[in-house]
Each structure stands twice: as C-alpha cells, then as structure tokens.
Amino acid sequence: MQLDELINLAISLLTTVSILVIISIGLAVIFGMMGVINLAHGEFLMLGAFFTLSGHRAGLNIWVAMVVAALGVGVVGLVVERLLIQFLYGRLAATMLATWGLSLILVQAVVLIYGPATQGIPTPLGSTRVGDYSVSQYNMVLIAVAVALLGLVYVVFTRTRYGTTARAATQLPTMAAAVGINAKVTNMFTFAFGAVLAGAAGALLAPVAGVVPGMGQAYVGRAFMTVVVGGPGVLTGTASSATLLGTVDSVVSNATTSFLGVAALLVVAIVLLRVLPTGISGRTGRQL
C-alpha cells in the first residue's frame, strides 16, 4: 500500500469517526445527563442546517452563519424544554412520544417555510493533493471540529459552575437537591446545550449533505447507535463508540461496499451490547 493511499484512507476514516461524534454528541449530552431520549434530535440537526442556510443567504459569512445557527437551535431547545419536556421528566415513553410528535411538527413547519425541495450551500474551502489523491479540506475542518466539540463539552462540564452542578445532579440527585441545586434550571440548560450541539452538527453537515426537511432521519439512527453503544459517559462513551463504529464502517466500506459497511456497523453494535449491556462506558458509571 502506497503512503498516499494510506494517508487518504486515514483521513477518510477520521472523517467518518468525526461525523459520528458530531451527530451524536448533542444526543449523548441529553441522554447521558438527563436520561431523556430525544426523538427530535434529527430535527434539531435539520434546523441547524436550515438556519445556516438562511444565515448564509442573508449574507453572513458561512462560519458565522454556522455559529449563529447552532445558538439559534439552542434557543429552540430552551423553548421546547420549557413548554414540553419539563412536564415529562421520568416518563420515558411519554417523552419519546412527545418528541416524536415534535419532530413531525418541526419537519412539516420547515416544509411550509422553505418548501420541500432539496437545498444546499456549496462546500467551503477546496481540495488538497496527497500524492495521487485529492482530499477535501472541509473534511479536515470536520475532524478538527469534532475534537473541539469534545473539548467544549469537557470544559463546560468541568470548568463551569453549571457543568459541575449538572454532573452533581445526574450522579446524586437527592444530594444535589439537598445542597440547593436547582434541578429545574440545570435541566433546562442541559437540554438547551444538547440542542446547541445538535444544531452545530446540522450546521456543519449543511455544506456536505443535501439540506432537506427530512434529513434528520438519515442521521438519527446512527446517532442513537453511537450513544447506546457508548453508554452513559458523555465524553468517554461518545468518543470511544464513535471511534469503534466509525472504524468498522469505514474499513468495511472501503474494503467491500457501503451496504456491508452499514451492516457491519449494526452487527458490531448489537454484539457489543450483548457483551456490555450498558455500553462501553457503562462499567465506569455516570462520569464524563
């Protein structure tokens, strides 16, 4: 195997892993910290893409548009938490049903506003040659951003007051209440933060994917798989399972076909859950 081919494969693998991290970190925060299964995660992601589209069309610089879009989805998340989710804590099935209803509404609302046709933003940056191969520079951005997002989550949960209280509330809910941590406020922020991350994922994918109202469905399955395989640890779980699943998908896809890649990913996920029923980070408990 030539060196250039190897580098190219490595970049391709890292890109796949990074995309998994990006699409699942928001879900992991909401699931890991609050135990809420957010079936509207894909639609939060889709909103991020559409907000980016609008920002870009309004003349914003593409990178600025992405940041604004992510924050915009955060606001949506905040509203959703206040109006809906806060009444449903501890009712797993009810939350799933309500977020499913929400996703129906969001998709159709976007159809009514933007129309059903596929939209898109040109991929920024160009390509770089590596020997015989050329590689999209935007893929490098995705890899860097995936690392940066993991870093952001780490910093938020260890270096901010909100983060420490949020972790305390997750690990020892009664104790946290006893020392006066307001679970309501904490949950609200956690949900909004998860929404910001989901929005960021949509914003980042907007230039490489088709921006369609139904686009969330294409990602949500893999995001759930990553989070479940990862287990309750937001950082350790997401990073390790994205690496594992991404590597399996990428290696098998490159060696055979995309279909077998997807199939291999699902098989590995199921086998792994059989061995580690609570996910990779399940043994280490609810830590970051």
Binding site: L97, G101, L104
Partner: peptide, 17 residues
Amino acid sequence: GSWTPIVLGVVLIGVVL
C-alpha cells in the same frame, strides 16, 4: 392538506400532556 403531520404532532403532544 399539508397540515397533516402538524395536526398529528399536536394531537400526540396533547395526549401526552
């Protein structure tokens, strides 16, 4: 009508709440 998903979504949320 193109409001079908919205009405369904609202009904679901209404039932839950």
